[in-house]
């Protein structure tokens, strides 16, 4: 009898475990397939491309383990990487500072209009972002609607301009990435337990103290998500710099674009993209280590 029990015990859990494992893998399949198709495969193709050599005038490119592409790609490009990080950093700061009050107000005082108010934040983004960006060229034209008027009134010097300067590029980036900060911030602030805020006031906290000691720390998951969602794409962005910028505002995205679409140096462009991607992974991991917690990373994912 005992032997049968033992044998049963030994066999049954084994079968269940195997099945469990199979189920677990089966459940992983859709997500895994998604990751494979949309992440692993493209990156693999890009890595493969980055190691090709050849030229468009000699039949195209062949895979040759051409690691020198990376050397080629990085030579003299530090300025552009640095500039992109600075612009993206300013963008992140700008979007968070601008959208925090809005998100806060909607979450705490939006009442039954919350959804409608959120919708108004999103509304401009129903128009293609290229068109929106290009419209800024009209609005900010040197002798246009705004600057022209101010110049006519004598409030600005005649050769003042915004377009083709870093102000226009960072401004355009902030404008375009605003909802990516506003929405996760809103989600995080909305989730703050009002009772905790009440407690702070009950304990004689001033409004400023309540904000800095209670509300802001509790909204950190939102800030974290907002930062990632704006900083990462803004670093690789090139549209604002292309449309609103000038010769002195080119970002690394513009360099990659030029390499790929104008000079047809596809492997070098791929190598630059790889470097940019891994640079971002390292930067964001560091950031997550320093500021984020696991909780916040999850929240970031949820907020996204």
């Amino acid at each position: 009898m005992a032997t049968t029990v033992v044998s049963r015990k030994a066999s049954r859990p084994h079968g269940i475990e195997a099945r469990r494992r199979r189920v677990a893998y089966a459940l992983l399949t859709p997500g895994g397939a998604w990751m494979f198709v949309f992440l692993v495969l493209p990156v693999a193709v890009m890595a493969y491309m980055s190691l090709k050599s050849g030229g468009v005038l000699s039949g195209g490119f062949r895979f040759t383990w051409a690691f020198e592409n990376y050397v080629d790609a990085l030579a003299g490009r530090q300025t552009f990487f640095l500039r992109s990080v600075i612009y993206a950093g300013s963008t992140t700061l700008g979007t968070v500072v601008l959208s925090y009050p809005a998100a806060y107000w909607i979450a705490f005082h939006g009442g039954r209009f919350k959804s409608a108010l959120l919708f108004t934040i999103l509304l401009p983004y129903f128009v293609s972002f290229v068109i929106r960006t290009v419209q800024w060229k009209f609005i900010l034209a040197d002798h246009g609607l705004v600057l022209g008027t101010l110049k006519d009134l004598g409030l600005l010097p005649e050769d003042f301009r915004v377009l083709s300067t870093w102000v226009a590029v960072v401004g355009g980036l902030i404008y375009n990435y605003l909802p990516f900060a506003a929405l996760p911030l809103y989600v995080a602030i909305e989730r703050i337990d009002r009772a905790v805020v009440e407690c702070a006031y009950d304990l004689y906290a001033t409004p400023v103290q309540a904000f800095t000691k209670v509300i802001f720390p509790l909204s950190m998951p939102g800030v974290f998500a907002a930062t990632l969602l704006t900083f990462v794409p803004a670093t690789g962005d090139y549209v604002e710099a292309e449309v609103l910028g000038g010769p002195t505002t080119r970002m690394i995205g513009n360099i990659i674009q030029t390499e790929y679409l104008r000079q047809a140096r596809y492997p070098v462009a791929a190598a630059l993209s790889m470097v940019l991607m891994f640079g971002m992974v390292v930067l964001t991991s560091l950031y997550a280590k320093l500021i984020g917690t696991e909780d916040e990373t999850v929240a970031a994912a949820v907020g996204a």
């Binding site: 290009v134 060229k137 009209f138 034209a141 040197d142 002798h143 246009g144 022209g148 301009r161 377009l163 083709s164």
Partner: peptide, 8 residues
């Protein structure tokens, strides 16, 4: 041309 026509 855009920048020419809008005076930039």
């Amino acid at each position: 041309v855009d920048d020419l026509t809008n005076g930039n």
